[in-house]
C-alpha cells in the first residue's frame, strides 16, 4: 500500500471465460442484467444469488475479489436501502418504539439489494477481467462508432503508461518523506501532482501523434484478432438463454 496518493486497485485476473468470444460475454452480461431488472419475484431473486455465486466461482472469480467488489456496491446501498423501510408508507411489520418498518418498504429494499448484487456479480464475472483490447474489438464488431473504439483502444493502451508515470511521481514524493494528508499542503501537492501528470501525458500524446503520422496512420486500426464464434460460444449462449428464459417464466407465473 502506498502512503502517498496512489492506491492500488488490483485488476481482475483473467478468467476461465477467456475461451469465449468477447461478444458472447458482452451479450451474456447484458442479457443477465436485463432479466435481473425485469424479475419481480423476491424469492426467485433470492434463489438466484447462490446460483450466481456458484457460477462466478466456476468461472474462476476469486472469493476475495468478488467480496471487495460487492463491498463497494454495498456502500452505495447502505444509505439508499436502509431508509426505505422507514420512509415507504405501508402496514408496519416491526416496531422498535417510535421506529416502524413498513412491509412494502422492506420488500422494496430487499428487491433493490438483491437486484444490485446479482447485477454486480454478473458484471464482475462476465465483463470484469475481459481485456480492454478484446472488449474494444468486440464492441467494434457489435457496431460501436469507429472513433469511439479507437478512443477506447488508445486509452486502454495508455492507462498502463500513465499509471507508471504516476507511480514514478508517487515514488518521488515518498522518497522525500511526503505523506498524503487532507491539509492545504497535501491538497496543493496533489494538484501539482495531477497537473504534472497531465502535462507529461499531453506531451507524450503529441509525440505519439507525430510518430503515428510519420508512419502514415490513416485513422484506422486493423482488428487483429479473428473474433470467431465457436461451438463453445453456442453452447454457452444456448445454456444461459435457457436458464434466463426459465427465470422469466417462473417469475411471471408466480
Amino acid at each position: 500500500m502506498s502512503e502517498a496518493f496512489l492506491c492500488a486497485e488490483a485488476a481482475v485476473e483473467g478468467s476461465r471465460l477467456d475461451r469465449f468470444e468477447p461478444r458472447t460475454r458482452v451479450a451474456a452480461a447484458v442479457a443477465v442484467v436485463v432479466v435481473v431488472l425485469a424479475a419481480r419475484s423476491l424469492p426467485l431473486l433470492a434463489g438466484l444469488v447462490p446460483v450466481a455465486l456458484i457460477a462466478a466461482r466456476l468461472a474462476g472469480v476469486g472469493v476475495a475479489d468478488l467480496a471487495r467488489r460487492l463491498a463497494h456496491v454495498e456502500g452505495f446501498l447502505v444509505v439508499l436501502a436502509l431508509l426505505l423501510p422507514l420512509t415507504v408508507p405501508g402496514p408496519a411489520v416491526v416496531t422498535f418504539g417510535p421506529i416502524a418498518l413498513s412491509q412494502s418498504g422492506l420488500e422494496r429494499a430487499a428487491a433493490i439489494v438483491l437486484r444490485v448484487n446479482l447485477s454486480a456479480i454478473a458484471l464482475f464475472t462476465l465483463i470484469g477481467g475481459l481485456e480492454p483490447i478484446r472488449l474494444g474489438h468486440a464492441l467494434a464488431r457489435l457496431g460501436m462508432p469507429e472513433k469511439l473504439v479507437h478512443l477506447l483502444l488508445f486509452a486502454a493502451r495508455w492507462v498502463g503508461l500513465v499509471a507508471a508515470e504516476a507511480r514514478r511521481l508517487d515514488d518521488a514524493l515518498r522518497v522525500r518523506g511526503f505523506r498524503a494528508r487532507p491539509s492545504a499542503h497535501g491538497l496543493r501537492t496533489l494538484a501539482h501532482f495531477i497537473g504534472q501528470l497531465l502535462v507529461r501525458a499531453f506531451e507524450r500524446a503529441e509525440r505519439v501523434e507525430e510518430a503515428m503520422r510519420c508512419r502514415a496512420f490513416a485513422g484506422r486500426f486493423a482488428l487483429v484478432d479473428e473474433g470467431r464464434f465457436t461451438r463453445l460460444d453456442a453452447a454457452f449462449a444456448v445454456g444461459l438463454g435457457l436458464v434466463l428464459l426459465a427465470v422469466l417464466v417462473v417469475d411471471r407465473s408466480s
Binding site: 477506447l152 488508445f154 486509452a155 500513465v162 499509471a163 504516476a166 499531453f202 501523434e209
Partner: peptide, 24 residues
Amino acid sequence: ERDVPKTAILAALFFVGSLFSVPI
C-alpha cells in the same frame, strides 16, 4: 482523427486520476 490520441491519453489520465485518494 488527429485528436484521437490526445483525447484518449487524457481519458486514460482521468481514469488513473480517479485512483488518487485523499485520506479523511
